[in-house]
């Protein structure tokens, strides 16, 4: 029994006592909009660093920031908004300077075939059209508010959804005629949703910062570097993100 215990202690020591080599498991907390691109990057990172395993926790950036501040075991945090990154740097959980690795812009999302004949932001003021926006409390809603203010349009939404995915569900089912979501979300939604660019989107570009946590192993820094590399940029561009 004693010997077994000693063995366990030795093994436990092994797995934590090599912070220098890029091996072991790292946990990446990333904004939900990064799901597809980060999963791809994670697989490539694992292939390039045998013995390393990347585990993801995707979710809303504000929820992730709260989880990290409550002591969740994160090694890397990739946020969809600088404000949520600041919540984590404020508590000292992250001491490295966060780096912006991608930018996202809003697009008008309409169901396939555009049944509401929506052509621009002005259509969001029409009361007879069904409109979905994100709630102001979540990043896509805050960005939408900004572009409407800049365009001088008073939007007449029928619903203020809790996240982008909920908005896209309503668009793809044809329950609403138009919505404002990020370009990457439109691309991830597939054929049932069409995206339209609009000029005012330039006024509300969203920065995505990334940083390793203060207590993270070296592999976490390597993963951040990989996201910032040329290959990382290529995968993110493919998903619809703009370069920082």
């Amino acid at each position: 029994m004693k010997r077994a215990l000693a063995l366990v202690l030795v093994l436990a020591g092994c797995s934590t006592a090599q912070p220098s080599a890029s091996t072991g498991e790292i946990t990446v907390f990333a904004a939900a909009s990064l799901t597809e691109s980060f999963q791809k990057l994670g697989q490539e990172f694992e292939a390039a660093h045998p013995g390393t395993k990347v585990v993801f926790n995707f979710g809303g950036s504000s929820a992730l920031a709260q989880q990290i501040n409550q002591g969740a075991p994160a090694d890397v945090f990739a946020s969809a908004a600088p404000a949520n990154m600041k919540q984590v740097t404020d508590t000292g959980a992250i001491t490295a300077a966060p780096v912006t690795f991608a930018k996202n812009t809003l697009q008008i999302a309409v169901p396939r075939g555009n049944p509401g004949k929506v052509t621009g932001l002005a259509d969001f003021a029409k009361p007879d059209l069904k409109i979905a926006l994100c709630a102001e409390q979540v990043p896509c809603g805050a960005a939408a508010k900004k572009v409407f203010a800049a365009a001088g349009v008073t939007a007449a939404p029928d619903t203020l959804e809790q996240d982008v995915k909920a908005v896209l569900t309503k668009v793809s089912l044809g329950e609403v005629d138009a919505a404002l979501v990020y370009r990457t979300d439109v691309r991830a939604a597939g054929a049932k949703v069409e995206g339209e660019d609009f000029a005012e989107a330039a006024g509300a570009v969203n920065d995505y910062p990334i940083a390793p946590l203060a207590k993270a192993p070296a592999a976490a820094k390597d993963f951040v570097d990989f996201v910032l590399s040329e290959r990382g940029r290529a995968v993110l561009t493919e998903a619809g993100f703009a370069a920082p």
């Binding site: 709630a135 939404p157 029928d158 619903t159 203020l160 959804e161 809790q162 909920a166 569900t169 309503k170």
Partner: peptide, 12 residues
């Protein structure tokens, strides 16, 4: 509720 009726103050 939020999926079927959405979220709009005073209404849903």
């Amino acid at each position: 509720t939020i999926t079927f009726a959405g979220n709009f103050p005073g209404r849903t």
